[in-house]
Simulated scan of single mutants.
Amino acid sequence: MSEEGHGILEGAVAPQVNPHLFGHADAEDFLARFYRSGRSHHAILIEGPEGIGKATLAFRFANHVLSHPEPASAPERLGDPDPNTPVSRQIASGASHNLLHLTRPVDEKTGKAKTAITVDEVRRAGHFFSQTSGTGNWRIVIIDPADDLNRNAANAILKILEEPPKRALFLVLSHAPGRLLPTIRSRCLPLKLSPLSRPDLAKALTSLGLAPDGGRTSEDVLTEAAGSVSQALKLLNYGGTEIVAAFNEVLQSSGPAARRAMHRLADVLSAKDNDVIFGFFLDHLREHLVERARAAAFAGDLAGADRASRLSSEIGERIGISQAYNLDRKQTILSLLEDVTR
């Protein structure tokens, strides 16, 4: 499940301790069989949209491997981790000497996660592998997600992947594998996960106490979440449903009414400590523009398709510039909305 900085989204369960995984039985069976065969690859690229269970799968597989260090005697299936075993307790507390979770570090000044996984974090992996495992067990690194590696960090990981230590396993998570260095992708075994089906998404939300028959998980939420638990949580617990409605109001209005709707939406998105819903809106905006480009292309409006596609690809760059120069977030949002509605 997606993380809010280094905290977990409200209503979610940390993947290290999550006892449930929905919708990926085939991937679990593949990993269990592949490991038991003794021919397991040293790096597995687990790819798919954000919030569908990639990290939960990675920790379940890590638990399986560390609990059964000899492949030939490992079970043929990945079972639910037993929270009472030493391996599970160590993984849950972050105290395992055989598992390293690489993710964006916290900025000590702001208390928030940095924008990238830095080379200093990757150096931790080098130190991790240089230490002799007291048990002779596997040593596993989960990179979560590798999309956040900056250039130096990516190159440092690549060097380790090129000459992996004995009994080392990398579980490389990616929301958008096309952004990774081709040389990193080429050294990994790809394992693609699909968005959750509506029934599986409903089961996942039910396990979090958001039962569909309880009234909160409407059909609209299941549709808008597009198979992602983290998107559903943002819709339900962070006001995402209201943000989508406000954006639709902007699109459907014109003149002064549209301008007022833009300002109302921008005020909400630019509020202090509203980073989760701001990120949700940017994702929603990108999806809207991608769909607009696709519809324009099918209609033969190539100029419209090109414009929507370019706007979608520019969002990240424009937000990055805004953050780098500490520009007013509200003005940045208004600029984006004005471009989208032209």
Results as ranks from 00 to 15, higher is better:
Asp107His: 09
Gln90Ser: 14
Leu196Gly: 13
His6Glu: 13
Gly11Pro: 02
Ser174Glu: 05
Leu100Lys: 02
Ala32Val: 01
Phe281Ala: 05
Ala27Ser: 01
Thr332His: 00
Glu242Cys: 02
Thr332Leu: 03
Pro177Ala: 02
Ile140Gln: 06
Ile52Asn: 08
Gly51Ser: 03
His263Thr: 15
Val87Ile: 12
Gly38Cys: 02
Gln231Asp: 15
Leu236Asp: 01
Gly126Cys: 11
Gly48Ser: 09
Ile52Trp: 12
His68Cys: 08
Glu47Ile: 07
Thr56Trp: 02
Thr115Asn: 08
Ile46Pro: 00
Ser230Pro: 04
His175Arg: 12
Ala324His: 13
Pro49Ala: 15
Gly126Ile: 12
Gly23Glu: 06
Phe298Leu: 15
Leu149Glu: 07
Ser218Cys: 03
Ala113His: 02
Asp339Arg: 15
Ile333Phe: 13
Glu163Asp: 10
Glu3Asp: 11
Pro145Thr: 14
His97Val: 13
Pro165Lys: 10
Arg264Asp: 15
Gly134Asn: 10
Asn98Leu: 03
Leu169Asp: 01
Arg286Trp: 09
Val17Tyr: 01
Arg167Gln: 14
His97Ser: 13
Ser186Asn: 00
Gly51Ile: 07
Asn137Ala: 11
Pro256Leu: 11
Gly94Asn: 10
Ser270Glu: 04
Ala257Val: 02
Asn137Arg: 09
Gly23Trp: 10
Val13Ile: 15
His288Glu: 08
Glu121Trp: 00
Phe30Asp: 02
Ile319Glu: 10
Gly304Met: 08
Leu196Pro: 06
Glu287Met: 10
Leu158Val: 00
Gly11Met: 00
His24Glu: 05
